[in-house]
Amino acid sequence: MAIESDAVEQELELAIHPMDQFLVKPLFGGGHGDIGMFTITNATLWLGITVLCAIALMVLGTRGRAIVPSRSQSIAEVIYVFIYKMVEDITGKDGLKYFPYIFSLFIFILVANVVGLLPASFTTTSHIAVTATLALIVFVAVTVLGFVKNGTAFLSLFWVSAAPLALRPILALIEVISYFVRPVSHSIRLAGNMMAGHAVIKVFAGFAVVTFISPAAIGAIVAIYALETLVVCIQAYVFTILTCVYLKDALHPSH
């Protein structure tokens, strides 16, 4: 990507376009044209690849149903038990009926993040449109669930009964603000982490064309790639654990 034949860029030698990788383009028709709601784009392609990888891991990987698991089955089981324990520990036994939703969320983010690390791939979770949708789904679902389960008692989430009476209205205001900021931080945390890491890799890749910096640049790419491998898993984990915490608030709103 960095080596483009644009005349101006050839003069500059450096062609760093770290944001190009995030462009959403139609997959067919030469890569231009309007993007309608149902247009098949590179985002569609990589969402599809994410689905296929998730199915490959969780369905094909477990098709042996072995008592002594194969490697892929162990991975699927480890992820299952990890998320199951997380949901059980944070939300309690009554949160377990939401386990399939939370698991689907986790496996989507994890696989999308990991697939996004492939060179020349498109990282769907680096787009605020995607992460904001995920965060809003969680936010709306948790808020509706909170009111359905607890009625108006759900509002006690904002009324800190442990605090002195005089402080409670101020705390309530802060709690309400922090509650509505949740989807923002929830989504920007994931998209920001994805975007920043990938952009930094691209910047170093751009520097790699300059002969005397290239060893350092390539070393930096390797190092950041390793870091990103960690970050993509941690961000999937963080998104999921926050979802569990919000769900716990909806099920047990009292402080």
């Binding site: 993007i35 709601m37 247009t39 784009t41 985002a43 569609t44 969402l47 995607v130 949708t133």
Partner: peptide, 12 residues
């Protein structure tokens, strides 16, 4: 690009 991304995300 938002409607497109959101639509395909929901399908996914």
């Amino acid at each position: 690009t938002f409607p497109n991304q959101i639509f395909w995300l929901l399908v996914t």
